[in-house]
Design a protein around this nucleic acid. Structure first.
Length: 616
RNA sequence: GGUCCCGUAGCUCAGCUGGAUAGAGCAACUGACUUCUAAUCAGUAGGUCACAGGUUCGAAUCCUGUCGGGAUCACCA
C-alpha cells in the first residue's frame, strides 16, 4: 500500500498552511480526526488553532484550506466547513483501491519484524493452590500483550517465574504428609493442582483449630492480658496476633518452618516431597493453560533464582550505588527519586525479594538479549517495580530504559473483594466449565451446528465459551479495577466475544455460498454507499491501532476496535444484500469488503487469544 | 501522614495526546426472521461526566484543591 491517506493529507496540510499563511507547522500540529457520522466527510481538521497564524475567521480559513486541498490533492474530492471544522471527503476511488489492495491479505495489519526483542513475564503463580480469576486476568493480559507486540513487529519471549518455594508450599507439604495418608490425585480422581490446593486449605483449617484452642488456654489468655491495647476486644487482638502466633507459639507453624529449613538444607526426603507436590501442581496448571490456549517460551523457578543477585549487590557496592551499614546489611538510598531507602541484602548476607528480581532481570538479559522487559503484575506492586527499575537504571543495566510494569487492577466480585478465607475466590477451571456449559445450552436452543460431528461441535462451543470469557475480561482497560459478574461473563450478546465471532461467521457463511469467484468486477463498482466507505476507513485504522495498543500495552484498544468493526458490519449486513446485490460489480465489491473485514476481525481477535469458528 | 490509581446512564464499560449535540452493552419497553446464520438489526427511555475553582476561542479530557473508593510505604514475597 502506498502512503497512508492520513499522513498524506497531513503532509499536504502542512504545505497548505505554509503556502497560504507562511506558517511553519508540522503534521503533529495539524491532527486529523475522523469526521463524526452526522456530518459529511471522512476526515476533519479543526482550524481554530490556525486563527493565530492566519489572522482570519475560522470559517474563512477552513474554506481556503479546503479549496487548496481540493485543488492539490487528487484523493480529496469535496469539503465543507461548519463553524471551525473543515470536513474533507476522500474519493470513493481511493477507498475502493485501498480495499482491493488489502482484502486478500490474510496478515492485514501485522507489521514486518522491527528487529527488536521483548520479554513478557506473566502468570507467575504460587504453587500451593490452583489458578483463580485473578490469574486469569493476568494471563489473558500477558498473552494478548505478547501477541500485540508480535503484530507490531517485535520478537517476543513469553516467560513466567514460578514461585515454587517458601512457606506456602511447605504448608501444603506438611498437611499432605500429616493428613494425606498416601492419597494421590490418581487415587482420588482429582485435578492435581486442586488436590494440592486442598491440603493447603486443610493446613489453614488445622492451624485455625489449634489457634482457637490456644486462645482459650492459660498461655493464650496471658498473652492477651499482656499485649492487648486498653479497649481492644479479644477477637480483634487475636486476629492481629495470628502471624506472631504462627511464628512463636504454634506447633504446626513450627513444623512448617522446620519443613522450610530442611528444604533449604537440601534434605533429600523433603526435596522429594516438594518435587512430588509441585509436579502435581504443574500438571494441573498446564491443563488450565492449555484450555486457555496459552504457552510460554521459558519458565524460571524461584527455587533456582532466589539466591541470585549477590553479584549485583557487589557491583552496586563497587559503583557506590549501594552502601553497607555497620550491621553488614546493604542499602540503596532512593530518596532523591522519592522512593525512600531500601534494603537489598540482609544483615546475614541473604538476598531479599528485590535482590532476586535484580538477579533474575540480569539472567533474562543474558538468556535473551532483549531491549525491553514487560512485567505483568497486579498494581499492588507498583512501588516495588518503581524501586526495581530505578536500581537497575543506577546500576547501568543496558535494558533499563526498556523496563515496563504492566500494572493491572484487581478483579472484584459484585459482592466485593475475593477473599480466600471466605471462600469467595473464583476458580479458573470452574469458571471455564461454567461458561462452556452456558455455551452448550445456547447452542442447543439455536441448533445451528447440530449437524456437525460431536467433536467439532465441542470445539466450536469451546471457542465461543472462551471468547465470551476472554473478551469480557480483556475489553476493560488494564489499569482499572474491574468488577467480574459471573452472570455477565457468560453473556453472549452485546459487547461480547461471541458477538464479534458472529460477524465473522456470517461472513464465512456468505463466502461459502459465493464460492471461489473472480472479484475483479469490483473495480467497476461506481459509487460506494456511505456505510461502505466508512467500513473501509475503519479497516484502514487497524495497522495504526495495533501500534497504539503495543505502545500502551493495552489489549482493550484492540478489543474495542473489534467490537466496533463487528457492530458496523452487523448493521451493514442487515441493510445491504451481498450475494443478491444489484450488480455483479456491487456483489464483487461487497465480497471483497466482507473478506477484508473477516481477515481483520480474525487477526484482531487472534491478538486477544480468541479463535474464530467458521460456524456457530 | 507521604506517594500512586480510580470516580462518566440503575449496572458494566468506551471516550481522556483539549474540539461539533458525551457513546455502547446489560437490564426495561416496542418493532423486524418464507430473506446471506435473529448469538442480529431498528426504536423508546435513561447524564450535575463526584464536587469546587483555574487555564483556554473551546474542558469528561489539562492544572489546583475537596470528597468518595482502592493500593502502597517490612532485613515478607
Amino acid at each position: 500500500m502506498a502512503q497512508r491517506i492520513t499522513t498524506l493529507i497531513q503532509d499536504r496540510l502542512v504545505v497548505a498552511v505554509k503556502t497560504l499563511y507562511g506558517a511553519d507547522l508540522t503534521a503533529t500540529d495539524l491532527p486529523l480526526s475522523n469526521t463524526r457520522k452526522e456530518f459529511v466527510g471522512d476526515f476533519t481538521v479543526v482550524v481554530f488553532p490556525l486563527t493565530r497564524v492566519a489572522r482570519k475567521k475560522p470559517e474563512e480559513i477552513g474554506a481556503e484550506i479546503g479549496q487548496y486541498l481540493l485543488q492539490h490533492v487528487p484523493e480529496i474530492v469535496d469539503f465543507n466547513v461548519i463553524k471551525g471544522f473543515l470536513n474533507l471527503a476522500v474519493s470513493p476511488r481511493y477507498w475502493q483501491d485501498y480495499l482491493s489492495g488489502i482484502y486478500s491479505d490474510t496478515t492485514f495489519g501485522i507489521q514486518p519484524a522491527n528487529g527488536q526483542k521483548v520479554l513478557v513475564e506473566f502468570s507467575s503463580p504460587n504453587t500451593n493452590k490452583p489458578l483463580h480469576l485473578g490469574h486469569v486476568r493476568n494471563i489473558l493480559l500477558g498473552w494478548s500483550v505478547s501477541r500485540i507486540l508480535e503484530a507490531a513487529g517485535y520478537k517476543v519471549f513469553k516467560v513466567q517465574i514460578v514461585n515454587d518455594r517458601g512457606i506456602a508450599i511447605c504448608k501444603s507439604m506438611l498437611a499432605w504428609k500429616k493428613f494425606g495418608v498416601g492419597a494421590t490425585p490418581e487415587s482420588t480422581g482429582m485435578k492435581s493442582d486442586h488436590f494440592v490446593g486442598d491440603y493447603y486449605v486443610r493446613f489453614e483449617q488445622e492451624f485455625q483449630k489449634e489457634y482457637q484452642q490456644w486462645q482459650a488456654s492459660a498461655a493464650g489468655q496471658e498473652i492477651f492480658r499482656q499485649h492487648a491495647k486498653a479497649d481492644e476486644s479479644e477477637a480483634t487482638f487475636f486476629k492481629g496476633y495470628k502471624d506472631q502466633y504462627f511464628n512463636q507459639h504454634s506447633a504446626l507453624g513450627a513444623e512448617a518452618q522446620e519443613m522450610l529449613r530442611s528444604w533449604e538444607q537440601h534434605d533429600p526426603a523433603t526435596l522429594e516431597l516438594w518435587k512430588t507436590l509441585n509436579n502435581w501442581v504443574y500438571a494441573g496448571f498446564n491443563a488450565t493453560y492449555d484450555r486457555l490456549g496459552v504457552s510460554f517460551d521459558k519458565l524460571y523457578y524461584e527455587s533456582d533464582t532466589y539466591l541470585l543477585g549477590k553479584d549485583m549487590v557487589e557491583k552496586g557496592l563497587e559503583k557506590d550505588v549501594f552502601y553497607r551499614e555497620p550491621d553488614n546489611s546493604v542499602w540503596i538510598d532512593l530518596e532523591d527519586a522519592k522512593l525512600d531507602r531500601k534494603v537489598v541484602q540482609r544483615r546475614d548476607g541473604t538476598a531479599v525479594y528485590i535482590t532476586q528480581d535484580l538477579g533474575t532481570a540480569e539472567l533474562r538479559y543474558e538468556d535473551f538479549g532483549v531491549e525491553k522487559m514487560v512485567y505483568v503484575v497486579a498494581d499492588e506492586q507498583i512501588y516495588h517495580f518503581q524501586v526495581l527499575f530505578e536500581i537497575l537504571k543506577r546500576l547501568g543495566a543496558p535494558y533499563a530504559s526498556g523496563l515496563y510494569h504492566l500494572a493491572y487492577g484487581m478483579v472484584d466480585l459484585p459482592t466485593g473483594k475475593m477473599k480466600s478465607r471466605e471462600g469467595t475466590v473464583v476458580d479458573a477451571d470452574d469458571l471455564i466449565d461454567e461458561v462452556i456449559a452456558e455455551a452448550w445450552e445456547n447452542s442447543r436452543e439455536r441448533g445451528t451446528i447440530a449437524d456437525l460431528p460431536e467433536k467439532e461441535q465441542a470445539e466450536v462451543i469451546e471457542q465461543i465459551a472462551l471468547a465470551a470469557l476472554k473478551f469480557f475480561i480483556i475489553k476493560v482497560n488494564p489499569q482499572k479495577r474491574m468488577i467480574f459478574d459471573p452472570r455477565e461473563s457468560v453473556d453472549m450478546q452485546g459487547t461480547t466475544g461471541p458477538y464479534v465471532q458472529n460477524a465473522y461467521v456470517r461472513i464465512q457463511s456468505v463466502l461459502r455460498k459465493a464460492g471461489d469467484e473472480d472479484l475483479s468486477a469490483a473495480a467497476e463498482y461506481g459509487t460506494l454507499e456511505k456505510e461502505e466507505q466508512d467500513l473501509i476507513a475503519q479497516l484502514a485504522q487497524f495497522p495504526d491501532l495495533i501500534q497504539e495498543a503495543a505502545r500502551n500495552y493495552d489489549p482493550s484498544i484492540i478489543a474495542n476496535y473489534c467490537y466496533n468493526l463487528a457492530k458496523a458490519y452487523h448493521r451493514y449486513y442487515h441493510d445491504f444484500s451481498i450475494l443478491k446485490a444489484d450488480s455483479s460489480a456491487a456483489r464483487a465489491f461487497r465480497l471483497q469488503l466482507s473478506t477484508a473485514i473477516a481477515n481483520t476481525l480474525r487477526n484482531g481477535m487472534d491478538m486477544l487469544g480468541i479463535a474464530m469458528p467458521e460456524r456457530m
